[in-house]
Design a protein around this nucleic acid. Structure first.
Lengths: 192, 192
DNA sequence: AGTTTATCGAGACTATCTGTCTCGCAATGA
DNA sequence: TCATTGCGAGACAGATAGTCTCGATAAACT
């Protein structure tokens, strides 16, 4: 056991919470460390002691408690199309809230500048979603609902990518109806 | 006719070219106006006289002569699937070059911070691609190659979104083969 | 209890960047 | 010729990132 004062959990959470709220108010670019420290009631050094850069703080703030790979398990009622639609409708609802969209935009800005961060963003956000979809598709395939030669990777990546694309574009954020149509479009050719 | 010296076209182009090369070297976040001015051999005021912010310069640099909605018209040989594949293969090749990817990442970073810029990015980059695809799909539909109830908007947006998503993720940049698979996946259910 | 060690909030400090302003010069039109 | 506008250059003020130091505080070890 190392001696000395322990890291303050309440400060850590105050920093992440302050970061999240500031991200929604001013965006990634205009977010400053001083602002975070002031709102969190924390010394600047307490931030720099635990995070290397603004991007790291933002990534933790968003991924630790913001837009985490959403917790609802992908249902398995036996009907692949309906299950996917149920799940994606919920996901679309989550990521099109002001909070969800704001955090995703911030993560994108952070990731487009920093390859390490982009990797983490993919691993902790995109990949888990694609994985769940792919796993569910695989079960459906083994049950004979999907053709044996269907490219499950492609389907999963397409579903996630097409919806995130519309969130990032901000012109036509996806609706639950869009999610339904998308599943139909992509699955129609893959179903047995 | 207004009096006075005219805007220098050579300076304008030097600024945009310097911006493009610097974007590839240091990325959007670390790009500074001083760097641009120095590399372009131009006074800082000459930049601020014509552009309001870094984002504006970057948008012009990328959209004026970088990743412009690529000029090749979408072919119409009568076979919708093959035509789309031909065109998307070429697009994927373009946007996965270091230059193409670098500029797209920069545009994304700029756009995620600035709604006005995001709109322009959509209007001048994403929308033209989706439009061309949609127009070609519509012809195919009227020729009876696609079902009458196929959602052409969805198809176009999905094709563009799924590919851009993989460019932005940077883990698995799309290949020409991915483009082929994607077209197959999305079109299979829409074909008559 | 007392010592040691690491973190804490606070803020001074330097580097750098943004955006404005000013200079003297060059080009354009009246 | 002369007024007007853009030009390159660079000084300048304000803001920010990131480092460093301070005295105080909390946890572990003796």
């Amino acid at each position: 056991m190392p001696s000395g004062r322990k890291r303050s959990e309440s400060s850590r959470q105050a920093i992440l919470e302050a970061t999240r709220s500031l991200l929604l108010e001013v965006g990634y670019e205009r977010l400053t460390i001083d602002q975070i420290a002031a709102r969190a009631g924390v010394g600047k050094q307490t931030i720099y002691r635990w995070w290397a850069s603004k991007g790291e703080v933002v990534a933790d703030a968003a991924l630790d408690d913001g837009v985490t790979p959403h917790p609802v398990a992908l249902p398995d009622t036996g009907a692949i199309r309906a299950d996917l639609q149920t799940w994606l409708r919920q996901w679309v609802t989550d990521i099109t809230t002001p909070e969800g969209t704001g955090l995703i935009l911030a993560l994108t800005a952070a990731g487009s500048d920093n390859k390490t961060l982009a990797d983490r963003l993919y691993t902790q956000f995109s990949a888990p979603h694609e994985d769940r979809i792919r796993d569910r598709l695989r079960r459906a395939q083994s049950e004979g609902q999907l053709r044996a030669d269907a490219d499950l990777e492609s389907i999963a990546s397409t579903l996630v990518g097409a919806l995130l694309y519309r969130v990032l574009g901000r012109n036509r954020p996806p609706t639950t109806q869009d999610a339904d149509h998308l599943v139909e479009l992509v699955l129609r050719g893959a179903e047995a």
